[in-house]
Amino acid sequence: MAEFNASVKDQGDISIVYLKGFLDAHTAPVLENTISELIDKGKYRIVANFKELSYISSAGLGVFMAFIEKIRENNGDIKLSSMNDKVYNIFDLLGFPLLYEIFKTEDEAVKKF
């Protein structure tokens, strides 16, 4: 069915995670692994680029919640960028803009660190 993949690109000490496809209860573990690998490597500055993500479900949102506490304890953050309107709406309904910084472009997110 729907595919999802997450690729990581390092830019200085910031890791940019590119999300692609459908992020739901079935594909969430993929992103979970990606982020926990980054944390294992001590990379706490993460930008998630949503440009090619076409759908996110509640389980997908949960992935970000699962790690945010630990990341912020280590002076890091997850910043979100380049969401399409539909995905942004899902984040917005849940009040995520109150919890995460969401940017229009990846550059803006990177600069904020």
Partner: peptide, 8 residues
Amino acid sequence: LERKNFVS
């Protein structure tokens, strides 16, 4: 609640 779970 686990950290990754939430309820709307």
